[in-house]
Structures are given as C-alpha cells and as structure tokens.
C-alpha cells in the first residue's frame, strides 16, 4: 500500500517535528531559567559584567545610531508624503516621535544588535565549546552558566534600553533634520510639536520592549553557542541560528508586548 506508507511517513514527520519543537522549547526554557537564576545568585563577576556592557552596549552605539538616524529621516519623508494626501503634513513631528519611541527605535535597534551581538556571542561560546574551554571552566570550579551566560544576559538586558533611548533621540533628530532641511518645517515649531505630543508612556513602553529584546538577544546567542556542534560547521550553524531565532523572537515578542502595552 504505497499511499498508506506515504501517509504514515507524512504523519510521522509531523510528529517528529512537534516532538523536536517541544524538546527545543523545553531545553531553551530550562537554559533561560538557569541563566536568569545565576544572575541573582553569587558569586558575581563584576569585571566580566563590565566587559560585556562595553562589548554589547558601547560598541553597538554606532550601529544603532546610524540605523535610527536614517530611519527617522525616511519616516519623516514617508509621513509627509502620506499626510499630504489629506492635508495632514503637520503631524510629521509627532508621528516620527511616536513611531521611533514606541516601535522603530526598539525593534530596529534590537534587530541590528541581534545581528551584531547574538552572532558574536554564539561564535565566541561555540568556539569555547569546540575547543573545550567551557569544560576547562568547569574543571577550574567555575560554573560556565554563572561566568559566561549570566554576565551577558545582565549586560544585554541593561544596555538595550539605553541603546534604544539613544536611538530614539537620534531617530527624532533624523526626522528633525529632514523636516527642517527638506520639508520646510520651522525648527522651533518642529521641536515644540514633538515635545507637546510625546508622552512618557511612549518612551517607557519602548524601553520595556528594548529590555526584553536585550534578554532575547543574549539568551539566543548564549543558548546556540553553548550547544554548538563540533567543528567550524557547528559554530557557523550556531551563529546563523542565533541571529535567525533572536530576530524572529524579537518580532513575535514585539507583537505580544504591543498588545499588552497598548490593548486595542
């Protein structure tokens, strides 16, 4: 019965995928819980946390800044073009500010940092796994979750909101520059409109999102690197998986958080 056999194979492949998905989710959840618990339990490694804050936060500033600057500028042009269809060009400053702080600042910043940081963490931890450096840490009475994972989780969760805030400011500045130089807005009016319409909730919601994205970015980098396969191919796959899964999770979580923070 070839049809029955093919059907059996099809159902089996669905079953295998579901089992794999459940296993991966369980494994990731346990890893996240363990990593998080080590953030709050001593010993702490302040030197390592400081190093990660520099690597994850400070060195991501140019990428986040450039992304925000051009996004803010493009957003101003788009809103002006769209708004002009119903004589609403004056909303440019307020929509740029709300768009940057609520959505584009944290999401685009998160995606850019995911590309830079998730990949770098996965490659570093993957290489450490392959070259037995993670095993060496254990034999030196040092818990790798505490020494490698917890500082990265903490650093990314703390620095992403700061990066997003700086991104918000630079993005609004991008919109301002385009608004004043290309769209004939008065500089004082532009700044006043932005300031008047922007609410604290717009900014804080974006910062909450950014903190969650920071956790996701570090978590996916650490998880994929820690469980890297053997050899260069294994590390390469871990790096790719880290960026892809972090990006997808950021977009999915963004929707969930938006629903939670701004219910329809």
């Amino acid at each position: 019965m070839p049809i029955l056999k093919a059907l059996h194979g099809f159902v089996a492949s669905i079953g295998a995928t579901v089992i794999w998905l459940c296993q991966a989710t369980g494994s990731l959840s346990l890893f996240a819980a363990s990593g998080l618990s080590h953030v709050f339990r001593p010993p702490y490694y302040p030197g390592e946390i400081g190093r990660q804050i520099m690597r994850i936060g400070y060195f991501s500033l140019p990428v986040v800044g450039m992304t925000a600057l051009f996004t803010g500028g493009a957003l101003a042009l788009q809103i002006f073009a769209g708004g002009s269809r119903f004589n609403a060009e004056s909303v440019v400053p307020s929509i740029v500010a709300i768009g940057m702080t609520r959505e584009l600042g944290p999401v685009l910043g998160g995606l850019m940092v995911a590309g830079r940081v998730s990949a770098s963490i996965a490659a570093e931890l993957g290489t450490m796994r392959v070259t037995e450096q993670i095993d060496a840490l254990s034999t030196l009475s040092t818990n790798p979750m505490k020494y490698l994972v917890a500082p990265r989780l903490l650093a990314a969760t703390l620095t992403m909101p700061i990066l997003a805030f700086i991104g918000d400011v630079i993005g609004i500045m991008g919109g301002f520059l385009v608004g004043v130089s290309r769209l004939d807005f008065n500089a004082t009016t532009y700044i006043k409109t932005t300031w008047d319409f922007l609410e604290a909730g717009d900014v804080t919601s974006g910062l909450i999102k950014a903190a969650v994205f920071g956790f996701i970015i570090a978590m996916m980098g650490c998880y994929q690197g820690y469980h890297s396969g053997r050899g260069a191919q294994g590390v390469g796959r871990a790096t790719t998986n880290a960026v892809v899964t972090a990006s997808i999770l950021i977009l999915a979580t963004n929707y969930v958080l938006t629903e939670a923070l701004f219910p329809a």
């Binding site: 070259t131 060496a136 040092t142």
Partner: peptide, 27 residues
C-alpha cells in the same frame, strides 16, 4: 582536580598569567 586538555583549552581572551592563576582569582 586539575586537568591538562588535549588542545590546551586556554582562555584566549585572558593573558597567560591570568589563565594559570584563573582558579586562584575566583571563588
């Protein structure tokens, strides 16, 4: 325990002396 790994497994982000003294600098 102390262990000498096949490839050395030295921490490449740390200096040689920090590698050797790793256990003495933690815990």
């Amino acid at each position: 325990f102390g262990m000498l790994f096949q490839g050395g497994a030295l921490f490449d982000s740390l200096l040689v002396w920090q590698n050797v003294a790793f256990r003495l600098l933690q815990g």
